[in-house]
């Protein structure tokens, strides 16, 4: 599917990954245009329903990214985020709902290069997967 342009949403933590996105931008690293950033104050802010609704409303892939474990601006938010992510991923796995369309990554404020790598890699993955059936289904 050469001309498929996925819609990918990135929920980025304000303190680490959003700053990394800024750094990647000002370092003029190449970033995919399909990747839309939504800034949140902490990765633990992402409730399951937010992710599920985002899939329903037309996302082909969702990346949640925040501070590395131990580096959370609020102390421990990302540990909770990690547990919640594991739960949602397990539900998607159990029901065979393409869990690979959801990813969680740690990217610190200094890691502009890593940010570009993570985002490009994830976007490639979603491009290969094609449009999400949840987005296109007429029976939902």
């Amino acid at each position: 599917m050469p001309d498929f342009h996925p819609r990918i949403i990135g929920f980025l933590c304000n303190w680490c990954t959003y700053a990394a996105a800024d750094l990647a931008g000002s370092s003029k690293l190449e970033l995919p245009p399909e990747f839309t950033v939504i800034r949140v104050m902490c990765s633990s802010r992402i409730d399951h329903n937010l992710i599920l609704s985002t899939f329903y409303r037309g996302a082909d892939g969702i990346l949640v990214a925040g501070c590395h474990p131990g580096d959370c601006h609020y102390g421990e938010g990302n540990y909770y985020a990690r547990r919640r992510f594991a739960l949602l991923k397990k539900v998607m796995e159990t029901l065979d709902l393409e869990p690979e369309r959801l990813e969680l990554r740690w990217v610190s404020a200094a890691e502009g290069n890593r940010y570009a790598e993570v985002v490009n890699e994830f976007t490639d993955r979603i491009r290969k997967l094609g449009p999400s059936p949840i987005r296109t289904s007429t029976r939902l």
Binding site: Y56, T136, T138
Partner: peptide, 25 residues
């Protein structure tokens, strides 16, 4: 506009997916 058709009432599966993630454990 996006899908061309919609099930009514909507979100019956989303509701169960949400519950599954919130409390299935």
């Amino acid at each position: 506009e996006a899908r061309g058709a919609l099930r009514l009432p909507p979100d019956t599966i989303l509701f169960q997916l949400g519950r599954l993630t919130h409390m299935s454990f």
